[in-house]
Design a protein around this nucleic acid. Structure first.
Lengths: 229, 229
DNA sequence: TCAAAAGTGTTGATATTACACCCATGC
DNA sequence: GCATGGGTGTAATATCAACACTTTTGA
């Protein structure tokens, strides 16, 4: 049954834009290439889709192989297939983006010993292929989506403060938000569980810790509720 | 240079969900298959991506070959690549969706003599492959996008009345809208040019004709304006 | 006691919703 | 003259934006 269609076929890969957030920056995880083309340059984690795996499975497998990260929030972004985007051959790539919280997921040395490193989105190095364009598309998608879906929580630890959440939105949307209005809005949605716990070891008044309630969100969504920041 | 990557490759196709609007319904254009698998069933227009053409070019080429339609609004939707979605072989398809106004674009007999026919979205026939899933995804995308981008105008003739526009939104969003509030909102955006002309040959008071002003939209958008219905 | 961030309400402006009647036209 | 859709305004309500001070804690 294989190869019923006797036409030349483009090669098919997946690439993944992994976003992480730390105290100072929104960051993207890149891999240093050790093979031509673009040897020594930085690129998105990714690789070839195997014949028996789905596209998303391929994206997750490559991510784990190259960075040790797994069980991330992962969503298809866009498919890039201009002839000439790979100098050797026609290669079509299905791009994904992922969100990870840096506190709870440390990246491992890649199994094939290639360097993996986080870069602030404002300080990206030169990138292989059209990966700058893919990252640009992913940033736009993240900015659009974070306002209408509660995906921002994927970038935070399970327990977080309202200030952490506000800073997350300020960094992604690149605009300041009013503290009181932000708290009013987010708390009025009733999507956060007040854990009754406080931050530890901070050199100022400790903030309350909250947790996102995905089940509550599903329930409200079915009743016509729309998340919006 | 071709075939630098010596791995088995999935076949790559594009498929296109073409939406059209007439007086009564939102419709989708389907092609009747004359070859197995799924011979006799209905399917989305589409076909194989050639090695030297971009994905969008492939989608437009297939559309024109199979339906005669060209120069449509066309946007990438999603890439479907589950193993098993084609019974013969691993086939990954990059799906697009298109918007066309039925008044100004008649479909032609397909060059390869396959039947092309419009179906109301509520009365779709049995579909080949996973095309029902692709259509479902396209409908959701259209419903989401039409509220935040002025793409609905692509489904109307150049000159249209406010009632036509309102009915368009009511059909796509599947909810009634208040006439006075709708008019207030849409006119307050200043995106419509009042042509100073009236409908002809209607058996009631003739309505004013309007035209969407894409340049105005671009200008406003750059100033931070957000279209929203 | 100082620095640093947490936490908290009110007000005016703006936007949204609900709602009903007269108008123009062709038949 | 009647059926059909075109066209119009207002009032009540809800939402949004702007804004400053007190509290808590550890160093």
């Amino acid at each position: 049954m294989a190869y019923s269609y006797k036409y030349p076929r483009p090669a098919l890969t997946t690439d993944c834009v992994v976003f992480g957030l730390d105290d100072t920056d929104l960051k993207i995880l890149l891999i240093q290439r050790d093979q031509p083309p673009f040897a020594g340059e930085w690129a998105l984690p990714g690789g070839f889709v195997q014949m028996e795996e789905s596209l998303e499975t391929a994206a997750r497998r490559e991510l784990e192989e190259e960075t040790g990260l797994n069980k991330l929030f992962l969503e298809q972004l866009y498919t890039f297939g201009e002839p000439g985007r790979d100098p050797r051959d026609r290669v079509v790539t299905v791009a994904y983006y992922a969100l990870v919280n840096l506190q709870e997921h440390a990246i491992q040395a890649a199994t094939d010993a290639r360097a993996a490193q986080w870069f602030p989105v404002a300080e990206l190095p030169a990138l292989a292929f059209d990966h700058d364009r893919i990252i640009h598309t992913a940033l736009k998608r993240l900015q659009g989506k974070v306002r209408y879906e509660p995906i921002g929580f994927e970038l935070l630890p399970t327990k977080f403060t309202l200030s952490q959440l506000q800073k997350l939105y300020e960094k992604i949307l690149a605009q300041p938000l009013d503290k009181r209005n932000f708290r009013k809005k987010i708390l009025s949605m009733n999507l956060l569980i007040d854990l009754g716990e406080l931050q530890q070891d901070v050199a100022h008044r400790a903030a309350r810790l909250y947790q996102f309630d995905p089940q509550k969100y599903q329930t409200l969504k079915q009743q016509g509720f729309n998340f919006e920041i």
